[in-house]
Amino acid sequence: MARKIGLFVLALAMVGVLCGAALAGDTLADVKKNGVLVAGVKDSLPPFGSVDPNTKEYVGYDIDFVKYIAKKLGVKVEFKPVSSANRMPMLMEGRVDLLACTMTKNPERAKQIDFSYTYFLTGQKFLTKKGTVKSLKDLEGKKIGTAKGSTSEQNVTKAVPSATVLSFDDYPQAVLGVQQGKVIAATTDESILAGQLGKLEKNPATKGKFEIPDLAISEEPYGLGMRKGDTNLVKFVNDTILEMEKNGEAAKIFEKWFGPNSDSPIKRGSFKITADKRGT
């Protein structure tokens, strides 16, 4: 019996594999035909992607990029919430056309999906209670929180092998862990941590109690994710974001979400969107 079930499951999977192959068509043409671009974004990770409590609309850095691309295409946008763990399957299974969700480009991922040029550059740091962590040594043997299926998870395991890494569904839960003393640090990209710190700074109960020590363990180039072999869409997206850099739109969006007057001020430094090969 068990064998029969096994065969049956295998057969199902085979059917699935064949059907899946039919998916990798020309997404750009499909999007134009259907008049809607489906983008996978984060829904509770300001300043990249979150739902505004008042308007109930998606807002953020990633969101603005997607909106510009859709406008250029002349189609509507539909945002679908994704998590770090489910975003790649969501894309590969065709639930979304494009991923704009703080996704670091790396060679393993590039084997599964295609990335655009780097549209955001940051590095992985730690968010801690003030004064508790001065060097990586202070993290040894402690618990560090991060998100499942992220590069942050894999980097920190390498950088501090003796630490216990706790993976949550998303980063804010790891920051909550720091706040409640369950982990000594939350680790992910500085840009995300800056958003979390900004939130903590706004609240009188937590203001001035947290910091992001100057300890970077990696460089994190973010790319927009598309299905493997979707060359037309990749080219269109790349051309669009290069144009955004040229006409100042990219810098404007950065200023809006990360400028000195934003909730999560960080520096853009010398970063510009170029036809780069980072992370591949």
Partner: peptide, 23 residues
């Protein structure tokens, strides 16, 4: 697994996200 206890399901997902071999 949702709160980070590394039990069977958590590990299965970990393997999936490291290897992309979900099946």
């Amino acid at each position: 697994m949702t709160i980070g206890v590394a039990e069977l399901m958590y590990q299965a997902r970990q393997v999936e996200s490291y290897t992309f071999k979900g099946f």
